[in-house]
C-alpha cells in the first residue's frame, strides 16, 4: 500500500505551560484505507486532526502529505488534498443555501464558474442531496447538514477525508446516513478516510485502529487485534463493542468460542455451529 501521510515524532502543546497535547507521535496513513482514531476526551485525537490540516503546527516533528512537507508555505496545497468534516453540523454551514455552501470552498480555491457548477451538482449527487439545492440550512436535519459538509469537502477532490467526530451530534439515523455516504465514497473513489470517533461499533468496521491515550499513540492494529485488549480499553476510558462483551460472557460460562467476535452475525454463527456439534 502507498503511504499517503507520514507523521514523524510529532509533539505539540497549546501553550508553553500546558501539558503536551501530543508527545512523540509517529504513524503513517495509507492510500485507500479507513483508519479509525479512538481515545478518551483529551487524548489528543482532535489535535492530530488540526495538525494534519495545518490548523495548528507541531513544535516538534514533521508531517508529510503525498510526499510534500507540511509547513506554512505548503499548507494551501496540503488542504487541497485533505478535507475535514467537523463535529457540529451548525458550525460549518456557511452558505445560505445548500449549493452556495458547497460552492464556497470552490470559490475560495478559485475554481472557474462552469467547472464549479458542475462540481457542486456532482458532489451533491454523491451525497444524495441534489434534491435540496436551494434549501436553507435550517430546513435540514443534522445528518443532511453533515452530508452537505461532506459534499463541500469532496467538491475539492481531496485524497483524504478526515471525520472529526462528525457523527457524534447526530441521531442514530443521521449517523447511519453519514457513514453510509462515506463508505460509498471510499469504495467508488478509493478515498482514504480517517475517522476520529467515540463510536466503537463504527471503529470495528475500520481497516485499522489507532488508540490514543494522554497524547501518545498507545496501540495500533486491526479491529480484531485492538478489541482483544478487552478491559484495557475500559481503563483507557473507552468501551468494548457489544458483540465482544457477549463473546466474553459466553466464554466465561464455558462455551468454547474460538475468539471474541466483532459482529453479532459472527457470534450467532459460531454459537449455532458449536451447538450443532454438541
Amino acid at each position: 500500500m502507498n503511504e499517503l501521510v507520514r507523521l514523524q515524532d510529532i509533539s505539540f502543546q497549546y501553550d508553553e505551560e500546558a501539558d503536551y497535547a501530543l508527545k512523540g507521535v509517529s504513524f503513517s496513513i495509507y492510500e485507500g484505507e479507513w483508519l479509525a482514531i479512538v481515545g478518551h476526551n483529551g487524548s489528543g485525537k482532535s489535535t492530530l486532526a488540526k495538525l494534519l490540516n495545518g490548523l495548528q503546527y507541531a513544535q516538534e516533528g514533521t508531517i508529510s502529505v503525498d510526499g510534500m512537507l507540511l509547513s506554512e508555505d505548503t499548507v494551501w496545497e496540503v488542504r487541497k488534498k485533505i478535507g475535514m468534516v467537523f463535529q457540529n453540523p451548525d458550525n460549518q454551514f456557511v452558505g445560505t443555501t445548500v449549493q452556495d455552501d458547497v460552492a464556497f470552498g470552490l470559490e475560495n480555491h478559485g475554481v472557474a464558474r462552469e467547472e464549479m457548477v458542475d462540481r457542486v451538482r456532482h458532489s451533491l449527487e454523491k451525497v444524495k442531496m441534489d434534491q435540496f439545492l436551494d434549501q436553507e440550512p435550517h430546513h435540514l436535519s443534522g445528518g443532511q447538514k453533515q452530508r452537505v459538509a461532506i459534499a463541500g469537502v469532496i467538491a475539492l477532490r481531496p485524497n483524504l477525508i478526515i471525520l472529526d467526530e462528525a457523527t457524534s451530534m447526530l441521531d442514530p439515523r443521521g449517523r447511519e446516513e453519514v457513514l453510509d455516504t462515506v463508505r460509498e465514497l471510499k469504495q467508488d473513489h478509493q478515498m482514504t478516510v480517517i475517522s476520529i470517533t467515540h463510536d466503537l461499533e463504527e471503529a470495528a468496521k475500520a481497516d485499522r485502529i489507532i488508540v490514543m491515550n494522554k497524547g501518545k499513540l498507545y496501540r495500533e492494529g486491526s479491529p480484531a487485534e485492538i478489541f482483544q485488549m478487552d478491559e484495557e480499553l475500559v481503563q483507557l476510558g473507552l468501551d468494548i463493542p457489544f458483540p465482544v462483551k457477549m463473546s466474553k460472557l459466553f466464554k466465561e460460562k464455558g462455551i468454547p468460542l474460538t475468539k471474541y467476535h466483532l459482529t453479532e452475525e459472527e457470534l450467532v454463527n459460531e454459537l449455532w455451529t458449536s451447538h450443532s456439534k454438541m
Binding site: H40, N41, G237
Partner: peptide, 8 residues
Amino acid sequence: TAGLDPRG
C-alpha cells in the same frame, strides 16, 4: 450524554 466519550 450526546457528544461525550464512553466513560463520560
